[in-house]
Computed example of a mutant assay.
Amino acid sequence: MKRNSAAAGLTLIEVLVALAIFTVLSVAVLGSLPTLFKVNRSNQNDQAVTVAAKAFMESVRTNLSTRAAFDAGVLPAAPDTSLMGGLTCTPTQSNPVPTWVTLTGSPQVRRVTLTCEGSGQPTYTFTLDVGRPAS
Rank of each mutant, 00 (worst) to 15 (best):
M1H: 11
N4I: 09
N4V: 08
N4H: 09
A6G: 02
A7K: 15
A7W: 00
G9F: 15
T11G: 15
T11I: 09
L12R: 05
A18M: 02
I21V: 15
I21R: 01
F22L: 12
V24K: 00
V27M: 14
L30G: 04
L33H: 05
L33Y: 14
P34Q: 14
T35R: 13
L36W: 07
N43Y: 01
N45Q: 15
Q47Y: 12
A48P: 02
T50V: 03
A52T: 06
A55S: 12
F56W: 07
E58D: 15
V60S: 06
L64I: 08
S65H: 10
T66L: 02
R67M: 08
A68E: 13
A69C: 05
G73W: 09
P76A: 03
A78G: 03
P79A: 12
M84T: 13
G86Y: 06
L87W: 03
T88E: 10
T90K: 04
P91N: 07
Q93E: 11
P96M: 10
V101P: 02
V101E: 03
T102F: 05
V109S: 04
R111E: 06
L114E: 01
T115M: 04
E117P: 00
G118Y: 12
P122L: 03
T123D: 04
Y124G: 01
T125V: 14
D129S: 11
V130C: 07
G131K: 08
R132C: 05
P133F: 07
S135R: 11
